[in-house]
């Protein structure tokens, strides 16, 4: 089994999930509570990776962070090297790719908090942001856990985006699914089957725990 690739995937999934937690909560908050009419456009953009082929997403990310784009040039000036085929480039692509898996459970849970609780809090002199922190977030634990688990699992298994943006550099961008592909190409079915089975089990355990959460097997319902 390709432990290096597995370890890389775990690191990538962890970093992606952490970034998505930091970005996804404010974004979901804005989607749920903003009075702007055009917020449906933002919702659609967030959801695009659900339907777009990963290679297409990867292609655009590659162009966007490549040496010909302003972003890519600025990064090269600061970091001394380009973004494509690096862990950082992979991280950017993964964040975009897994965005809906974090933002959608977050916003669904925020939206389901009883509005009267928010109004009670505002009337008690508590600001909107503080109300969000003291009432909405604690009541959204299930949605937050679901979003975290799903984005972790989704990043762990990504293939097309990584191939386009990261290529196949051992220890840097060769993630576990690419390693499986390589093993099959090299007719190393033994290694491929071991790694595949591991991914299958991990995915199943993650999804089973998520669904048990949805059914409130472990966390008590709100009311």
């Amino acid at each position: 089994m390709d432990w290096t690739a597995l370890w890389l995937s775990v690191r990538l999934a962890t970093a992606t999930t952490a970034v998505l937690l930091a970005l996804g909560i404010p974004l979901a908050y804005w989607i749920v509570f903003s009075p702007r009419r055009w917020k449906f456009l933002v919702e659609a953009i967030v959801a695009v990776p659900l339907v777009l082929p990963p290679t297409v997403l990867g292609f655009y990310v590659l162009i966007a962070i490549g040496p010909l784009s302003p972003v890519g040039r600025a990064y090269t000036r600061i970091a001394g090297h380009g973004l494509p085929f690096t862990f950082e480039g992979l991280l950017i692509a993964s964040v975009l790719y897994s965005m809906p898996f974090a933002v959608q459970p977050f916003s669904a849970e925020f939206a389901s908090v009883d509005r009267r609780l928010l109004e009670a809090s505002w009337s008690l002199g508590v600001s909107r942001i503080a109300t969000f922190a003291r009432v909405v977030l604690p009541l959204s634990v299930r949605g937050l856990v679901t979003g975290i688990v799903l984005s972790f699992a989704h990043t762990l298994g990504e293939f097309g985006v990584v191939l386009m943006v990261g290529g196949n550099l051992p220890g840097v961008t060769r993630t576990v699914s690419i390693s499986i592909y390589d093993a099959v190409q090299a007719l190393d079915y033994r290694s491929a089957s071991q790694t595949s089975l591991l991914l299958l089990i991990v995915s199943f355990v993650i999804l089973a725990s998520t669904y048990s959460l949805q059914r409130s097997v472990w966390i008590k319902p709100r009311h």
Partner: peptide, 20 residues
């Protein structure tokens, strides 16, 4: 003036206590 600045107390038909 937003509700935060009005110094009011509000009680609905349902108690709407913070369940957590």
């Amino acid at each position: 003036q937003p509700p935060q600045h009005r110094r009011i107390g509000l009680v609905f038909q349902e108690p709407a206590l913070f369940p957590h």
